[in-house]
Design a protein around this nucleic acid. Structure first.
Lengths: 204, 204, 204, 204
DNA sequence: AATGCTCCAGCTGAGC
DNA sequence: GCTCAGCTGGAGCATT
């Protein structure tokens, strides 16, 4: 009874030996594959690619689209909260994530945003790509915070993509949105608890 | 000679034992610290933070600013090359990296870019946040490629940050910039070969 | 200061940052310790010790005495089953383990063992330390198997410790004891399911 | 298709993508193999084998015979030096290693060993398998140390294999042989600096 | 050329 | 029971 497959061996020693040999055989094949992979990395490296980045891409490609978006968004929100996004304006994923939970984003709310404490929208960009002063950065950050408090959506960032001030505004907005009163805003949480892990169609 | 430090032990056995005990002592302290760290993660998790993202932030914070920018830029360029930046417009870091090597970015070159094969700049954004059609995406991508060929800098992306088309344009620009003729554009390479590694002030 | 729970920080950003900084602080100390450990290994190596063996000793010292005996015994039994104990006669631990479960080892049972198919006990050792021939090895192994079948305990190995034949006898005994009829003899199993892990007196 | 080198792809993006896809393909196969191996371990476990020991056996089987003997010998010598060989008398490998370096083991040296401070050889074993008292153990250990000092070879251990005293004698011998005067006896060192590593016939 | 260093894959032990 | 982070071991790399 309890024969696993076809009579593995007639005694315990033989059985043990057989198990180990099967493992060793598979391990050898695995090593071959590992070496092949290593070889490709070597090839890529000598072709000029950055191996470390390639590995990061492989990790990201292993994710589903949803998971990847989730990760991007969390990365950006956390970076903003930590003041790490110099010159890296909040991406759309982070933006959408931030806008979602509190309210369904009533776009009409911006009717009154025309010029209280946020920068006038067109003068700010005038700063252009010239390195912004610390004052400018602070002002932009403050404007972002004010905007957040007024319910202005993040997407209303008045600075162009190639301005450092855009990042500062984003950061201010994020800081204000994240910390005013509540302890851990929902944006910091993972959205999906777990999508079962394991793509459909993955045969046994 | 041969005495290493101050007479570690009077014989080999004692010496060996002493070495092992020193190691065990240190390993125990190390374990204590590891447990403390783990505890903080647990605390953070139950406070609602995403531990995985926290770890990623720790990894990034361990980098110098330059290294971090380098990484962001490479990430975005590789993502663009792999078609992974849906809704993630190229950040400034990637942009600056892409613009640097070929030419010192003659901004005046865009005098003639006003409307051949790129979208008219203001009509495109009109699509707004409504889900863009596949045609729109293709058109935006093509426009980006054309712009790249014409020497238009990436920062001239005509789409707003909250449009999917912006990402498509970036991607097209990146594809054209990266692959026309040359095999591995310099943007794919690591910039700094190695900055000595090891922050100053690291006492013995 | 040092609020533990209950209002950890006045806002989420600060809280996150604080958590990360605490972790980074601890991680730095941990790294210091890891470096110290590495340094000791280096010191040991240059003093002539074998680092790999030292690590193995550290791993074994981390076990309780019972666990260590268990491990030694299993190692030797498995090695015997795999024909890996040339010149390494079964240690006491393995012997005791093998003798325990089947029967309480009625020592008086060996009354009739005096010289059927096992070597006469004193003539065999006469071979001395001279390299034994393959025939001798086979004979010793067969004798061990026969002894096992007759209920002779392993400790009755007639060969001296410094003879290769002793290992062969052990191996034969082990093979016969392990495989006659039963599939997995109890000697191959771990004895203790789990002793709760964590020595008494270890303060939290 | 499948251009290997020389114009790997017509553009960088395609090349990168192709590299990653090749890696992903291989990684997937590798994962399949890893799962197969895991499955065998599961099977073995449910058959009653101890997985941890199986892994140790796999590690040892990966060594050459010489390396394995080397490891066994070092293990035992280090264990003896650390007082970890209760009931595990020194194996032949360790014995041979210990005897080798100082002198080519002049067996005639034992002419004068007949009974000064070492036990009388036959009375000691009389203790039998009964649990030896602490005094007995100490005495046996001392006898071993004395024997070592008198140049008696380790193989002259007067206790039988199934006596705890045998281990104590070995340990004493080892301690005396290892530490008298010299700091690190050669027995603690790895013998073979490195035998080229890599079995012949392994095609590139 | 040999050695030390840095990094990565695999293995091990804990936590959910 | 399974996943996951940390540790160990090995390889590739830079260095002397």
């Amino acid at each position: 009874m309890a024969k696993k497959s076809a009579a593995p061996a007639k005694n315990a020693d033989g059985h043990l030996r057989s198990l180990l040999e099967r493992i060793e055989r598979l391990a050898e094949e695995r090593k071959t594959l590992a070496d092949d992979i290593k070889e490709i990395f070597t090839e890529a490296k000598s072709a000029g690619y950055d191996v470390k980045t390639m590995r990061r891409m492989l990790r990201e490609r292993a994710l589903t689209d949803a998971e990847r978006q989730e990760q991007y968004a969390l990365d950006e929100i956390y970076r903003a909260a930590l003041g790490m996004l110099d010159g890296t304006p909040l991406g759309d994923a982070a933006r959408q994530r931030l806008m979602r939970p509190p309210e369904p984003a009533p776009d009409e709310g911006d009717s009154g945003d025309s010029g209280e404490d946020e920068p006038a929208g067109d003068e700010a960009p005038a700063a252009g790509a010239a390195a912004p002063s610390a004052d400018d950065l602070t002002a932009a950050r403050d404007a972002g915070m004010a905007a957040a408090r007024d319910g202005v959506p993040v997407t209303r960032n008045p600075y162009p993509a190639d301005s450092r001030l855009r990042g500062a505004w984003d950061e201010g907005w994020c800081a204000a949105a994240g910390s005013d009163g509540m302890d851990i805003p929902p944006a910091f949480r993972r959205r999906s608890p777990k999508p079962a892990r394991g793509k459909p169609g993955k045969g046994e």
